[in-house]
Write a protein that binds this DNA or RNA. Structure first.
Lengths: 155, 155
DNA sequence: AACATTTCCTACTAATTTACTTGGTAATAA
DNA sequence: TTATTACCAAGTAAATTAGTAGGAAATGTT
């Protein structure tokens, strides 16, 4: 598992797409504007996302991108893996001193952790994030209204 | 939160240190040999780790590095943060279109996720990983003995 | 049919980060 | 005194990230 700025751009762009894609496709130009990412870099990222069918492109005027499937069926791990391909870290496969010996323990421990991080990110979907954001927004609104109520009562 | 190869090197090196540091300090030369990381790169990483007091160096012959504190008190997040410093992703602080408006929602969603990943890695210590490894090793051994028992019974 | 818009594609490049190299100095055990 | 080790700094090669440039292909609009 890897978590670089490239992966963040992709997650951020997918979030933008999910949030603004309710009524019709979203153009990369819009996402570029919204998120401050160059159009061409977005094109690269979306080529990877499209290859994994996480997004679906529609050409021509009025075109743009849709999510490839429901926001609940797209995990953060899906997105990161699409753009930031999984690099095997334990390069001990061919290395001396490392075949089956004690030396490999460290590598396998890292591998286990890496899988655990992956599992963690697999369980969080774009849909989850959006719902979480909505809940927080609602909480803030409720809190504000309470505060203003108390304010008016005190006045 | 960021999870690059640099962070992996650091976690791997710390694991090596924890595993081999029971009897006396471990030299960077040993870790370099074990893990296939250049000595000088390790020096760089350990400069950062030492700055955060995750390791303690002892000079002179017979010297090397100790863990700075108990393996249970060193989280993966500690290690990664030491070498791979936290970069703020939401650069919308100064950007137009992004101050308080809808545009920022995507960023704050990413931020929330980032914090969640951080919390997750904070809860996993070097000690945890090692115990997990030992348990797995024991499981394997137990399973092997069962298999060989059944083999002898069948014969 | 012509045009504008958009995805889609390729090649190149600047900037940044990663990993390593070199050549030291300082502390310390033998 | 010497060997060994951490510690330090400057430079560099390799890889990755992010962006540029210049298109072709599809498609809705006029």
């Amino acid at each position: 598992m890897r978590l670089s700025t490239k992966g963040r751009y992709a997650v951020t762009a997918m979030l933008d797409l999910a949030l603004n894609g309710a009524d019709g496709p979203v153009t990369l130009a819009e996402i570029s504007e919204n998120q401050g990412i160059s159009l061409s870099y977005l094109e690269q990222l979306f080529a990877s996302l499209r290859a994994k069918e996480l997004v679906r492109g529609v050409r021509g005027p009025g075109g743009g991108y849709y999510l490839g499937r429901s926001a609940d069926d797209i995990s953060i791990a899906n997105i990161i893996c699409a753009v930031d391909e999984w690099v095997e870290f334990t390069r001990c496969g061919g290395r001396k001193n490392c075949s089956g010996g004690e030396r490999c323990l460290t590598h396998s421990l890292w591998d286990d952790l890496s899988i655990e991080i992956f599992d963690f990110l697999t369980k969080i979907s774009i849909g989850d994030l959006i719902r979480r954001g909505e809940r927080k927004k609602a909480d803030r609104a409720a809190h504000l209204s309470v505060v203003s109520d108390e304010g008016s009562r005190a006045a």
